[in-house]
Simulated assay, not measured.
Amino acid sequence: MSVHGRRVPAGRAGRLRLRRSLAGALRGADLLERKARLLLDRECAERRAAEEAGLVWRNRLAEADSWLVRGVMLGGERALAEAVPAGRASIEVRWDALMGVRHPAAMAWTGPVRSPTEPTPPNTALAHAETAYRAAVSAAAEHARHQAATDLLAAEAERTRQRVRALRRHWIPRLRSELTAVELALEEAEHEEAVRRGWAAARRAG
């Protein structure tokens, strides 16, 4: 008899090994189910946060687009080109881990800084547009962070559920079946031994 590719000794030693394997598999399934629940709880929280951040992003983007149209109508496309700072935005992401799953946990966004020599937006509408676009980019980055965390946690939760299903549907039933077979064989062997001892005792008494 073999378990997971390993030969299981017959008799009481085999029974002991199978009992230990079964107990370990049951504990493992329980721990994996707990892990899956924790991952799913965090996934749901991140998914809700992603939906909220996405709504904020779209609203701020619409506001920024509205100010941009007004600014271009007032100053033309040349004014828009002059209003764009030369610097670049930067994003710093802090990663965290839950049950071994690394995911983005926080985000720090820094907008481009306009140097003292650069021109400022030539009209109020473009100034409002710049502020609104900065807010929209920050909201977009926050939305992306929550969505990435959602995807990573969901993927690991699904892998964990698959492992639980493999244990509950295949590995644990197989161990129980093999353990039952070993215990039946031991009972039969013990019964036969008792019968032989009874016959031997009867012969000696006769």
Rank of each mutant, 00 (worst) to 15 (best):
P85N: 13
R78D: 15
H103D: 10
E92A: 12
A79T: 12
W67N: 02
L80V: 01
I91S: 14
E82V: 06
L74I: 08
L68I: 09
R102W: 10
V93E: 05
A86G: 07
R78I: 13
S90C: 06
E92D: 15
R94S: 11
A86V: 04
A86S: 11
A89D: 07
R70T: 02
A86I: 03
S90L: 10
G71R: 00
E92H: 09
R102G: 08
E77V: 15
P85Q: 13
L74R: 10
R94V: 13
H103T: 06
S90N: 09
G75M: 12
R94N: 07
P85D: 12
G76A: 00
V93H: 04
E82C: 07
L74G: 01
L80M: 05
L68G: 06
V101M: 03
L80H: 02
A105G: 15
A79L: 10
R102N: 13
A79R: 11
H103R: 13
A86D: 11
V93Y: 03
G100I: 03
E82K: 12
P85W: 09
I91T: 15
G87N: 02
W67Y: 15
M73W: 08
V69R: 14
H103N: 08
V101I: 03
V72L: 04
E82D: 14
A86Y: 01
P104D: 06
S90A: 15
R102T: 14
L80P: 03
A81K: 12
L68P: 03
L68V: 05
V93T: 07
R102K: 14
P104G: 04
G71S: 04
A81M: 12
A83F: 02
E92C: 10
G76M: 02
R88F: 07
E92P: 01
R88T: 12
L98K: 06
I91Q: 08
R94L: 13
R78C: 10
S90W: 06
A89T: 00
V93W: 05
M73D: 13
L68K: 05
D96P: 01
L74D: 11
W67Q: 01
A105C: 15
L98D: 08
I91P: 01
I91R: 13
V72E: 03
A105Y: 09
H103M: 14
A81F: 05
